[in-house]
Design a protein around this nucleic acid. Structure first.
Length: 449
RNA sequence: GCUGUGAUGGUGUAGGGGUUAGCACGGCAGAUUGUGGUUCUGCCAGCCCGAGUUCGAUUCUCGGUCACGGCCCCA
C-alpha cells in the first residue's frame, strides 16, 4: 500500500465541504474590503525565495531541477510570488493602492506535526502602494473581521510597531547599518538582546557604541510593556525621556489602533506589544499577529505587518506595503477543537447547505422517462442525487436517509399512470402527491422547507 | 536538530509465541413486491513494511515508514 507522503493530507468530502466554506467565508470578507483574488504558480524559481529570505531558506524547500536544468522550488510562502507577479505583470501601472488576496498551498520541508504540515494552506492579503496608519488599520481590520466571521473564540491579537524600538535605538545613536566586518547591524543586535532579556549584554553593546549604558533600563521598560491601548501612555513617557528619539512611530501606532477600533468588531483580546515579530528585517512599521493559546506551540494563526520587499523587484516606490498571511489549517484546527468542546456540529458557518439534498428515486420504471425532470430540477437550483442502483423503495429510503437527504421524490409505475410524483420530507415525514412536472415538484419541496 | 509514545478490517477497539484473531460501528444482501431512522439473519473486510530470534512471529528484538506529543528553530 503506497502511503501519502509525510506531512500531507487527504481531504474527504466532509472535510472538504468545511474547507470550501471557510475559503468562501474568507473570500467574501476580503471582497467586502475591496480585495481581489489572484493566483500564482505552485512552483517558482529558487532565486525568488533566496532573494527574499537568504540562502538559508533552501534547506527548508522542496527544491528541484527541471529537465532544462532550471533551479525551481515548490513555494514555501505566498508573499514573494505576489511581489514577483506585480513586477512581472506590470501591475505598478494600475491605480493605487492595489488590494490583492490569495489562497493556496505552500510547501516546507520540516518536521510535520499537528498544525505544522509539509503541505499547508495560506490565505493572505497585500495592500500595495499605500502605507501609513490608515492603510495598516485597514489590513488589521480585515484580519479581525475574518476571524470574527469564522466564529473563532479565545484568540488574541497583538499589535506592535518595529519602528518604535528601532527608532529609539537609532535615536540614541545606534547604527541600523551592518558595520564593516560585522554580521548584523547594532540595532538588530540590540533588538535581539531586548527580546532575550539580556540587559547586561544590552548595556555592554551600548558602551561599545559610545552610548550611555543607563539607556538600557528605559528600553527594557519599553519592551516589557504589556496591555491594551492604554500602554501607549507609558510608552510615550519613556520615549519622551530619551534624547533625540522621535515619537512619530508611536503616534502612527496610536492612529492605527483608533482606526481599527472603529473599522472592526472588537476581538476577544487585543494588546499592544512592542516586541512582536521584531526578528524579520523586512518589516518596517506596524506588525501584528494572532494567537490561539489552546493550540499551544503552533498557536500562531495569523501574522503580518508593513514591509519593504518590492524594491527587490525594482519597484521601490511601491514600498512599504502591508499585508498578512492567515494559517488556514491552524484556524480550522482551532475551530474544530472549539466546536467539539462546545458540542457544535457546524464547525465553519455555512458548511452545511441549508437547501438540503433531494433524493430522486425512480422505482420499477423506465428511468429515461423521468431524467428530464432531474435536469429541470437541477437547472432550477435544487441539489438532486439520482438513485442509480434500482433499489426497492424501503432500501432507497434508507439510502436517502443515510446520505443525508432532506427530501425524496419517488416515482413508480402508479405515479406514471396517474401523472404524479410522491414528494416527501425526511425531516417531518410529511408526504404529498404532486403533478409530474419540475415546477410542481420544486414548489412542493419549497413548501416543506 | 534533539527527544518521548504509539501503529490490529474503512472507523473505534479486544487479545495474544501455535487462536477459526473477538467485539462495535460501517458497507452489501435478505427478512420486507410502494416508503427511511428500530429490529433480526447472513456476508464483506484486518495484525504498517523489512530483517533477526524461533520448529513456528501478528505477538519478542532491531531498523524503516507513518501518526501524535515535548523542546529547539521558524514566523
Amino acid at each position: 500500500m503506497v502511503q501519502r507522503p509525510r506531512g500531507t493530507r487527504d481531504f474527504t468530502p466532509e472535510v472538504m465541504a468545511r474547507r470550501l466554506a471557510f475559503e468562501q467565508l474568507l473570500e467574501e470578507r476580503a471582497r467586502r474590503h475591496g480585495f481581489s483574488r489572484i493566483q500564482t504558480p505552485i512552483f517558482e524559481s529558487l532565486d525568488l525565495f533566496t532573494a527574499k529570505s537568504g540562502p538559508g531558506i533552501v534547506s527548508q524547500l522542496y527544491a528541484f531541477e527541471d529537465k532544462s536544468e532550471r533551479q525551481l522550488t515548490l513555494r514555501p510562502e505566498l508573499t514573494a510570488p505576489v511581489m514577483r507577479m506585480i513586477a512581472e505583470e506590470g501591475m505598478q501601472m494600475l491605480p493605487r493602492p492595489l488590494r490583492l488576496s490569495y489562497y493556496g498551498q505552500c510547501y516546507r520541508y520540516e518536521e510535520s506535526k499537528k498544525g505544522r504540515y509539509r503541505e499547508f494552506f495560506q490565505y493572505g492579503v497585500e495592500l500595495i502602494g499605500e502605507s501609513g496608519p490608515l492603510a495598516e488599520a485597514e489590513v488589521i481590520a480585515l484580519a479581525i473581521d475574518m476571524l470574527d466571521a469564522s466564529g473563532l473564540e479565545n484568540w488574541e491579537v497583538r499589535i506592535g510597531h518595529v519602528g518604535i524600538l528601532k527608532g529609539a535605538l537609532t535615536g540614541l545613536g545606534l547604527s541600523p547599518e551592518t558595520p564593516e566586518g560585522g554580521n548584523e547591524p547594532p540595532v538588530a543586535s540590540a533588538m535581539r538582546l531586548l527580546d532575550k532579556g539580556d540587559d547586561a549584554g544590552l548595556a555592554k553593546l551600548f558602551t561599545e557604541n559610545g552610548i550611555n549604558p543607563e539607556n538600557a533600563a528605559p528600553l527594557r521598560a519599553l519592551a516589557d510593556l504589556e496591555g491594551g491601548v492604554e500602554t501607549l501612555g507609558p510608552a510615550r513617557d519613556i520615549l519622551s525621556s530619551l534624547e533625540g528619539v522621535s515619537l512619530e512611530a508611536l503616534d502612527d501606532l496610536q492612529t492605527t489602533l483608533e482606526a481599527v477600533a472603529a473599522l472592526a468588531p472588537a476581538p476577544p483580546s487585543l494588546s499592544v506589544d512592542l516586541t512582536v515579530a521584531r526578528g524579520l528585517d523586512y518589516y518596517t512599521g506596524m506588525v501584528f499577529e494572532v494567537k490561539v493559546p489552546e493550540l499551544r506551540g503552533e498557536g500562531q494563526v495569523l501574522g503580518g505587518g508593513s514591509y519593504k520587499l518590492l524594491h527587490l523587484f525594482g519597484l521601490p516606490d511601491l514600498d512599504p506595503c502591508c499585508g498578512f498571511g492567515l494559517g488556514f489549517d491552524r484556524v480550522l484546527l482551532a475551530l474544530e477543537a472549539q466546536a467539539k468542546a462546545s458540542g457544535r456540529s457546524e464547525v465553519v458557518p455555512g458548511e452545511t447547505d441549508p437547501k438540503g439534498l433531494v433524493a430522486f428515486i425512480p422505482f420499477d420504471i423506465d428511468v429515461t422517462r423521468v431524467l428530464p425532470l432531474v435536469a429541470s430540477l437541477r437547472n432550477a437550483g435544487e441539489r438532486i442525487e439520482l438513485e442509480l442502483r434500482g433499489r426497492k423503495i424501503a432500501k432507497a429510503m434508507k439510502w436517502a436517509n443515510s446520505i443525508g437527504c432532506q427530501f425524496t421524490v419517488v416515482i413508480g409505475p402508479r405515479d406514471l399512470d396517474s401523472g404524479q410524483a410522491m414528494v416527501k420530507s425526511l425531516d417531518s415525514g410529511e408526504q404529498q402527491a404532486v403533478a409530474l412536472t419540475a415546477g410542481a415538484i420544486a414548489a412542493a419541496i419549497q413548501a416543506m422547507r
